[in-house]
């Protein structure tokens, strides 16, 4: 193949047994490439994401983590290669996924209305929405701010609202793109608690982060990207103890990769 040592093991694929019978997982990426203007930004990514396993994507800036997340979530289409859920119904696929972006995008409405909107789109009837909104805001500790315009919230609160919106949707898969970048330790802890709650609820977590402590706390498996390539995929404990690729070693040692 290439000079890159492609180090992959398949630690968790067995675990999909615990998945609900109507699961959309596993998600299989097969030779996924993504080009923009002739630049290959993601190169032959093959990867299986399984139920019950928290996947953390690591890699230096520009490695393609956000792009990969968008491709998985269906916001982008691969140039070549295949992205295959175990369900083909696109409406069901939509309803069972949620994504929290690095910079939360909130509607110019109240906190509660932001959550209610997502539920309305999902087709939840008006009278069922109210308790669901309340529970979601409760979950992230925003219940007191329910009536405040979402856009005046602090960035930590906005990120929690984005999580509450995802919470209300009860997704089977949750994609998180650096959800705690720029947040203080307290806000980070609140977000992480919610991520744990998602995991306990049986939501598959796919998390991009630059916070190695966070990666240790939340990863069952690590997917390490470098320059648009999947360089290493290992169980978290093994990855942090003894990364097998040179790129991951250098990354963990805090060296500048290029």
């Amino acid at each position: 193949m290439s000079k890159l040592a492609l180090v992959i093991d398949k630690p968790f694929e067995e675990q999909s047994k615990t998945a609900p019978h109507d699961s959309i997982l596993p998600l299989v990426l097969d030779g996924v490439c993504f080009d923009i203007n002739g630049h290959r930004l993601l190169d032959r990514i093959s990867l299986t994401l399984c139920h019950g396993v928290r996947t953390v994507l690591l890699g230096p800036n520009g490695a393609g983590k956000s792009l990969l997340l968008r491709l998985c979530h269906g916001l982008l289409q691969p140039t070549t290669g295949r992205i295959q859920w175990s369900d083909n119904d696109s409406r069901r696929l939509h309803k069972k996924q949620a994504m929290v972006f690095q910079r939360p995008v909130l509607l110019r409405r109240s906190v509660a209305a932001n959550v209610a909107y997502a539920l309305a789109v999902k087709g939840v009837s008006n009278d069922r929405r109210r308790p669901m909104v309340a529970r979601a805001l409760e979950e992230v500790g925003l219940a007191q701010l329910a009536r405040r315009p979402a856009r005046v919230l602090s960035s930590g609160e906005q990120q929690r609202l984005a999580l509450a919106r995802a919470w209300a949707l009860e997704p089977e898969v949750l994609f998180l793109d650096e959800p705690t970048a720029n947040l203080d330790p307290g806000a980070t802890r609140l977000i992480e608690e919610t991520i744990n709650a998602f995991h306990r609820q049986g939501t598959k977590i796919v998390l991009v982060t630059h916070d190695l402590g966070q990666a240790r706390r939340h990863a069952d498996e690590i997917v390490f990207l470098h320059r648009g390539r999947l360089v290493e995929r290992s169980m978290a404990a093994a990855f942090f103890k003894r990364p097998r690729s040179d790129e991951a070693k250098a990354f963990l040692a805090g060296e500048l990769l290029d």
């Binding site: 269906g74 916001l75 949620a98 972006f101 995008v105 509607l107 909107y117 997502a118 789109v121 999902k122």
Partner: peptide, 16 residues
């Protein structure tokens, strides 16, 4: 421009 990815993520098409 600001909302498009979020709306797409929520399953909101252009009509909605």
């Amino acid at each position: 421009g600001e909302y498009t990815e979020q709306l797409q993520s929520l399953g909101v098409g252009p009509v909605r």
